[in-house]
Design a protein around this nucleic acid. Structure first.
Length: 806
DNA sequence: AAAAAAG
């Protein structure tokens, strides 16, 4: 039983409950000449997977009874089955499953397990785990005449004035338009079918992939001269105006301006200064560029990286031993708590005692700056307020990091950073021809063998930042040796969700394969046989989620004793209560002194539990000017009446463009998805009550664009990359500012405009204000009732890239 | 509250 599933008496939550008495959208609209979905239905009359509603339990037997369906199979037509495909043994197993042959008779060949899985009607397997012909095939095939035509889609409210006329024309290419005009839209909008074939690695999973000249409209206008971060911030339409390469560019336009705000470790600060202070950068401070003292190294705009600034390590890998550590440039070795101390009970999360109010942020920050900080005692310091106050939204102290400004890495190549030519080549193919700031910062340190903490905005290229050097290092560590059968993995990457593990593997695998290394995914929800088989053959890099990895370790099917590199993606999340213990146990299985790499967009001292135990003199990096709010995302808060919520939500998702809706619970996510379906808006759900096959498929349906609405729990909050989500709706406001940041980071990727709308009730305004303060995000609050123009305005067309350029 | 473990 998976840990995250409640015992259901054998019944998955969301399968049998629906369907039987429900009418799917499909049924209701089948045959209607207008209406995109109906069209799709007409083409695939009884495809068991053609309607999203069917995912929630319309119970159909595999194979269609309809002679018009391509899955058509006569009721008793076994003789027509492609028998030649089956060996004698298989056929025997099939017969046995039907009960034609008794067990006693066939004792010689007790049914192998794989045979017992077969449905008795036919030799073919139509298990849920197996990709359906009808549904999955469509993903890889352009369907120009299907249901994506926005105008044909059944509307949620037919009485309402249609947005189509004014809103959909420019913003959202129709499929058929794209087909007829070929490249017309390629310039500013990656098309699913062009950019990412089903099998192709999603290289841009964690970074904007389109950095080259394939986006001509963008390159002409980078909007870099416009002042930003001042109090009269540009309107959102302008703010959305970013280059295709936002990270680089954001840094380029703003980077030097902020350097003074976040002093460098090596230049501005005495070396003894504790690495971790408790202040997050305040926007208000950054908003006064003129007040800020200029920095000497601001002049550093010649494109050369400041690598000489980076602490160098000469030995291949720092040892835990303090003496060696100090020799390798450790700044904290001396006062670093020993392991035992590190587990002190009183180290609790610090309550945010700084207060959320923006107006007093600046001065308070200065106060804190002047606070004397003696040593790493900071690590274990508990705020006095924490003893008697406990809130949901805990703000941990920010990790003090060496800040990399994007301009510093201009002109640097992956090869300069120490990445081998094969990998460089693959990275180029993946769309990463030159490193982003976070990559340029972390790669050399990782190659040196140092422990690294990396913080980069959502979608800033973190996967490659650890993936490329990891592969390079694994390669070097076994140079000259041949890859033995059954070799133990040399590196492990842990992710908090299965979807993220999959996505990471899609990026890492091509890199690894280019140098002859093998990766495998180890995560739950799927049979372990394949995974174990891969491990037995021997893999070099394991990517997975904690549960199954620990399971296989216990079963002695996974041996991490030779594992020299361990990566935690979304590390702060992995350190949350209930997550951290398995992670710690897994890390303890890795080789003594293995290199640890921790990455997250919201990396803070929540990772202290791991850092104290496992990391040696970590190098901490972040990219300046890369706060969430400096991106291309427009944040809004709608204050609504609770009774209006359902209707407002439905009207909001009835729009052109991909919409991701976050709900707090699985049940509500499911409810909403069904509600949208019932309103004629095809929607998929993604949450932990679905089996893994449905999770994977539903996410893929969103990625491929077959549905435009995905309703998810926070399983989708972190790391998941889907192209072209231009609206994130938080049906339930998050409780933590980090959750807000990660959820909103699902849009505004690749420098595109995106919007985040959070629905709250009046009672929640105060909490929401505080949360936004902690997330350092400006968002206007607006009241809305059903049918208000504001709703349509918000969910209508995004500020398009064309407009931005115009 | 969600996420993460069966065969």
């Amino acid at each position: 039983m998976p840990k995250n599933k409640k015992p259901q008496g054998g019944r998955p939550n969301f399968e049998p409950r629906y369907g039987a008495n429900k009418t799917s959208f499909h049924d209701r609209h089948a045959g209607r000449p207008e209406g995109g979905r109906a069209d799709a239905g007409a083409k695939r009359p009884s495809s068991p997977r053609s309607s999203s509603t069917s995912d929630r339990g319309v119970d159909r037997r595999p194979g269609s009874k309809s002679a018009t369906h391509r899955g058509y199979r006569p009721a008793e037509a076994e003789s027509g089955a492609p028998k030649r495909r089956w060996s004698d043994q298989e056929r025997a197993g099939r017969d046995e499953a039907r009960g034609i042959r008794s067990r006693a008779e066939s004792g010689r060949r007790e049914t192998p397990h794989h045979q017992s899985e077969r449905p008795r009607t036919d030799g073919r397997r139509f298990n849920d785990d197996r990709p359906r012909f009808n549904s999955d095939r469509g993903a890889e095939r352009p369907r120009f005449n299907d249901d994506r035509g926005a105008a044909e889609r059944p509307r949620f409210n037919d009485d309402r004035p249609r947005r189509d006329d004014r809103a959909r024309q420019d913003e959202r290419p129709r499929r058929d338009a794209g087909a007829s005009t070929g490249s017309r839209y390629q310039g500013d909008r990656p098309r699913f079918n062009n950019d990412r074939g089903g099998d192709r690695p999603r290289y841009n999973s964690d970074r904007p992939a389109e950095r080259g000249g394939d986006r001509p409209r963008f390159n002409s206008d980078r909007a870099t001269e416009r002042p930003r971060y001042n109090d009269d911030r540009p309107r959102r339409d302008d703010r959305g105006r970013q280059d295709e390469r936002p990270r680089r560019d954001a840094g380029a336009s703003t980077g030097s301006r902020y350097q003074g705000d976040r002093p460098r470790f090596n230049s501005d600060r005495p070396a003894e200064r504790p690495r971790f202070n408790d202040d997050r950068p305040r926007r208000d401070d950054r908003a006064r560029p003129d007040d800020r003292p200029r920095r000497d190294d601001r002049e550093r705009t010649d494109g050369r990286p400041r690598y000489e600034d980076r602490p160098r390590v000469n030995s291949d890998r720092p040892q835990r031993d303090a003496s060696t550590g100090s020799a390798t440039g450790s700044r904290h070795q001396g006062d670093r708590p020993r392991r035992d101390d590190a587990r002190r009970d009183d180290r609790g999360p610090r309550r945010d005692d700084r207060g959320p109010r923006r107006d007093d942020r600046g001065p308070r920050r200065d106060d804190r700056r002047s606070e004397p900080r003696a040593s790493r005692d900071d690590w274990n310091k508990t705020s006095s307020t924490a003893k008697f106050e406990k809130t949901e939204d805990v703000v941990h102290e920010r990790l003090e990091a060496k800040t990399i400004a994007a301009p510093e890495v201009d002109g640097v190549t992956f090869a300069d950073l120490g990445i081998g030519s094969n990998i460089v080549e693959v990275l180029k193919e993946l769309g990463a021809s030159s490193p982003f700031a976070i990559q340029a910062a972390t790669i050399p340190s990782i190659l040196e063998g140092r422990d690294v903490l990396g913080r980069g905005r959502t979608g800033s290229g973190k996967t490659i930042a650890f993936g490329a050097p990891l592969v390079e290092r694994v390669l070097k560590s076994q140079a000259g040796k041949r890859r033995e059968y059954g070799r133990k993995p040399r590196a492990i990457i842990l992710a908090p969700t299965r979807e993220l593990a999959l996505q990471i593997d899609r990026t890492i695998q091509p890199i690894a394969r280019s140098v002859g290394l093998f990766t495998t995914q180890i995560y739950g929800g799927v049979p372990q046989g394949r995974q174990v088989g891969a491990l037995m053959k021997g893999v070099d890099i394991v990517i997975g989620t904690p549960g199954r990895i620990e399971d296989l370790i216990k079963q002695r099917k996974l041996d991490l004793s030779d594992c020299r590199i361990a990566v935690l993606d979304e590390a702060d999340h992995m350190c949350e209560l209930g997550f951290v213990e398995p992670v710690q146990r897994i890390l303890r299985h890795t080789q003594e002194g293995s290199q640890k790499l921790l990455f997250s967009a919201t990396l803070d001292r929540e990772v202290a539990a791991l850092v104290d135990e496992f990391l040696v003199d970590p190098a901490v990096y972040e990219v300046s000017g890369e706060d969430q709010d400096s991106g291309t995302i427009d944040h809004r808060v709608l204050v609504i009446e609770h009774r209006d919520k359902a209707e407002i939500l439905t009207s909001m998702v009835d729009r052109a463009g991909k919409t991701l809706v976050f709900a707090r619970t699985r049940a509500y996510a499911e409810t909403l998805a069904e509600q949208f379906d019932d309103a004629g808006i095809p929607a998929a759900a993604l949450h932990g009550d679905l089996n893994q096959a449905k999770r994977t498929r539903n996410l893929e349906r969103m990625t491929s664009g077959r549905v435009q609405v995905l309703v998810a729990t926070d399983v989708a909050a972190r790391g998941i990359h889907v192209d072209d989500i231009d609206l994130v709706i938080q049906a339930d406001a998050p409780d933590e500012y980090k959750t807000y940041m990660h959820r909103s980071g699902r849009t505004g990727r690749a420098g595109r405009a995106g919007r985040v709308v959070t629905l709250i009730t009046r009672q929640r305004q105060r909490r929401m204000t505080e949360l936004l303060g902690r997330a350092e995000i400006d968002a206007p609050f607006e009241s809305a009732r059903i049918g208000d123009d504001i709703i349509e305005e918000i969910t209508g067309r995004m500020p398009s890239n064309d407009e931005i350029t115009a």
